[in-house]
Design a binder for these strands. Structure first.
Length: 423
DNA sequence: TCTGGGGTCCTAGGACCC
DNA sequence: TCTGGGGTCCTAGGACCC
């Protein structure tokens, strides 16, 4: 049976989520900012048309924001995560063979659907997602994942495609590939793009016809796979069951520079507590913990960054245990006299929580700790994150990031539920 | 003044062993 | 001048993704 993939890609996802609950944003240039209102992470088509690039710091586009009345929003991950779940649930109605690739993208297997008109089927999916969730999507269909990405690229840019493009029905595939810059191909980043340009490989078509040995030598197996996929040879299977996580990181830039060890420990305690909660949600335990901190590398001032990695004597998923190792780690690497910008915690060497090896000399009451964590998580899930927290996380948390233009948690907090008014 | 956060996979090279 | 060879494991760093 020939393989067939569809890539469903939410258009300007974060902006679209905001528009569902605030229709006044429709038709206007809109951008969504990263944590700390730092850089642009999503743009409406109108904002793209103004030349606002992905990843640009907000302060560099203030003149455009003012001149064109660009609507600026802080990111609202509670909202986007919930909307993503709704989109994925809707897609799951169409096929059991679904890979949730990112917050705003999913691959569907359409193998075995070859007798249907695939473009029509794509339109059905698109219409249903829009009706059920309010989110517009683009859909690309092809015989490999990389080509499905190409097809979605075309679906998004070409008006007469009406959001769906089936590459298997395309008469002039080479013409299309020749119109796509190599750097727009999935897996080609800035470094490979530069390398390819130096060797006269400019377009997706050039890349498809590139010399295998050269690609293998300069871009490794990853590059070789991209070329094969462009040729229609599928190398990247649908991953329906996500592999268990290999690491959990929680890190944030501070809302203002941190200069004291007391504040640094508060922030790391907060990140540790968030990481531990994620760990429990994944039913994992950790054996290696790393804390790190750094000054602001964009600034012309004394720089310092360091990390401490701690091997835990016993795998654990308890916040208390992790704090006991993380905070002395901070003490060890903190140096007075610097203005710190960012800190974080990484949990690595994860093991299933059910397979925790108990140390013979470990006399703690694990059951008691487990009950404590269950109560903590239950309360915070129910009443709101941070309702019950460790004193080490601090009371004032002045170092926390800014979200000055955040929209309400429309879908995940009763208090923020949108109200329909008769006019 | 102001520049995100969280991941994955692959490869080269060193340590170590026989 | 000449300085073993090969396997395995681990880590750091580089590339990419959204």
């Amino acid at each position: 049976m020939p393989l067939l993939f569809a890539l469903v890609d939410c258009n300007n996802f974060y902006v679209s989520c905001e528009r569902v609950f605030d229709p006044k944003l429709e038709g206007k240039p809109v951008v969504v900012l990263s944590n700390n209102d730092g850089i642009v992470v999503a743009r409406s088509n109108e904002a793209k048309a103004l030349g606002i690039k992905m990843g640009v710091p907000e302060f560099q586009i203030r003149h455009l924001i003012r001149r064109y009345n660009v609507q600026v929003l802080s990111s609202n991950y509670a909202l986007y995560g919930d909307m993503s779940q709704r989109v994925m649930d809707t897609l799951a109605q169409f096929t059991p063979n679904l890979e949730v690739y990112s917050i705003d993208e999913a691959f569907l297997s359409l193998s075995g659907f070859t007798s249907r008109d695939l473009t029509d089927y794509g339109r059905t999916i698109r219409t249903k997602v829009k009706r059920w969730t309010g989110i517009p999507v683009s859909i690309g269909i092809a015989e490999t994942k990389t080509l499905a990405k190409v097809a979605a690229w075309r679906a998004k840019r070409c008006k007469d495609a009406a959001g769906v493009f089936d590459l298997t029905a395309c008469q002039d595939r080479d013409v299309l590939l020749a119109s796509i810059p190599a750097e727009d191909i999935w897996g080609i980043g800035p470094n490979y793009a530069r390398l390819l340009t130096l060797h006269g490989i400019q377009t997706a078509l050039d890349l498809r016809m590139a010399d295998d040995h050269w690609i293998r030598k300069r871009m490794g197996v990853v590059g070789a796979r991209i070329v094969q996929e462009l040729r229609g040879v599928s190398c990247l299977p649908l991953e329906e069951c996500p592999a268990p996580k290999q690491g959990i990181t929680v890190s944030r830039s501070f809302g203002r520079p941190v200069t004291t060890v007391a504040e640094m420990k508060e922030s790391v305690a907060f990140y540790t507590s968030r990481a531990a909660k994620k760990l429990r949600e994944e039913r994992l335990a950790v054996t290696v913990l790393t804390v790190f901190l750094t000054t602001n590398t964009f600034k012309d001032e004394p720089q310092y960054s360091n990390a401490a990695t701690i091997k835990l004597p016993v795998a654990t998923d308890s916040t208390s245990d992790l704090l006991r190792y993380a905070l002395p780690g901070v003490e060890r690497i903190f140096r007075e006299g610097y203005r710190y910008k960012k800190a974080g915690v990484m949990l690595t060497a994860l093991v299933p929580a059910s397979q925790v090896q108990v140390d013979l000399f470990d006399h703690q009451d694990r059951d008691r700790s487990r009950r404590l964590m269950r109560t903590l998580d239950g309360l915070n899930d129910c009443i709101g994150a941070g309702t019950l927290r460790y004193a080490a996380e601090g009371m004032t948390q002045h170092w926390k990031a800014r979200f000055e233009r955040r929209s309400p948690a429309y879908t995940t907090n009763w208090r923020d539920l949108p109200v329909a008014k008769a006019s």
